[in-house]
């Protein structure tokens, strides 16, 4: 069996006395959409922050394996190295676009590292060498490709901050994809979208999985999104994994229902209501 794209093993992240993530292990495969769900405060975003280098977990190991055999221990890398070499990209719950830059520029920034390397860290650029211009053209081409995929081609020169909310969400995904990731982490991509936009998002995420063949890791509260597009679901509660499986398996799991809806109510346990 080949190694999974992302293997999270016994990861723990503690803030003071509180374990935000506690002894968590799961895997996310290439060409699969893995959803991480759980009630508020279950540690989903903390997990993302660990994977993308915002936090360094105190215990555990997170291995990212590329198809060519290279592997990276994410907890040891700086965040920009995680993006660049381990090829993990992410989006945010609260959108973090470069609001004052144009849509196209947002996508160009995402390719900065590759561009810099191609132009010998700008030296060639200053000399106006062809290589610089070629790299720039390729970058624009890739940006255009993603603008087309997320249906924002007409907005290329618009200031990103002035786009409607749903467009900003899609742009953020396009920007993450422009870094050339093998694992794309999406933090509540459907939050604040109307049902139509949400359906479009499902189509987009599926196309990323099927056409680009990369792995997606998804935090989502919108169960219609989770149930429809996920291949596997990991359920967290209080930082621990309480269930894992296909959407159908998870839906019927008593532990999951308990986490979301609470314990059977007072009358049954015999405690007086207070």
């Amino acid at each position: 069996m080949t190694r999974p794209l992302l293997a999270v093993e016994h990861v723990g992240m503690r803030f003071g006395g509180l374990f935000a993530v506690n002894d968590l292990s799961f895997e996310a495969g290439q060409g699969e959409i893995t959803a991480v769900i759980g009630p508020n405060g279950a540690g989903k975003t903390t997990l993302f922050n660990c994977i993308t280098g915002f936090y360094k977990p105190q215990v555990g190991r997170m291995t990212l394996s590329h198809p060519d055999g290279a592997s990276f221990l994410l907890e040891r890398l700086d965040d920009h190295v995680i993006t660049r070499r381990a090829r993990v990209a992410r989006t945010f719950q609260n959108i973090r676009l470069f609001a004052k830059m144009s849509v196209l520029e947002n996508l160009m920034v995402a390719q900065h590292k590759r561009l810099m390397a191609a132009s010998l860290f700008s030296v060639a650029g200053l000399l106006g060498l062809g290589r610089y211009r070629n790299a720039e053209r390729d970058a624009v081409e890739l940006a255009r490709h993603w603008l087309e995929r997320v249906d924002l081609l007409d907005f290329a020169d618009v200031e990103a901050g002035s786009l409607p909310y749903g467009h900003q969400r899609r742009l953020e995904i396009a920007r993450a994809m422009c870094t050339g990731p093998l694992l794309l982490c999406l933090d509540e991509p459907a939050a604040g979208l109307n049902p139509r936009e949400s359906a479009e998002l499902n189509v987009l995420l599926r196309s990323i999985r099927d056409r680009d063949g990369i792995g997606l890791l998804l935090i989502e509260h919108d169960m219609s999104v989770v149930m429809e597009i996920s291949d596997r679901v990991v359920v967290l509660d209080y930082g621990r994994k309480i269930a894992e499986g296909t959407p159908a398996q998870v839906k019927g799991d008593p532990a999951v229902i308990r986490a979301y809806l609470g314990e059977p109510d007072d009358a049954e346990t015999g405690r007086p209501p207070c």
Partner: peptide
Amino acid sequence: HTRLGRAQRACEQDMKMASLLGIDI
């Protein structure tokens, strides 16, 4: 107009995000 300038403007707006996009802050 240059890549360096673009990276600088990006850092100016959101340094952490720029770093997450692979820019060496």
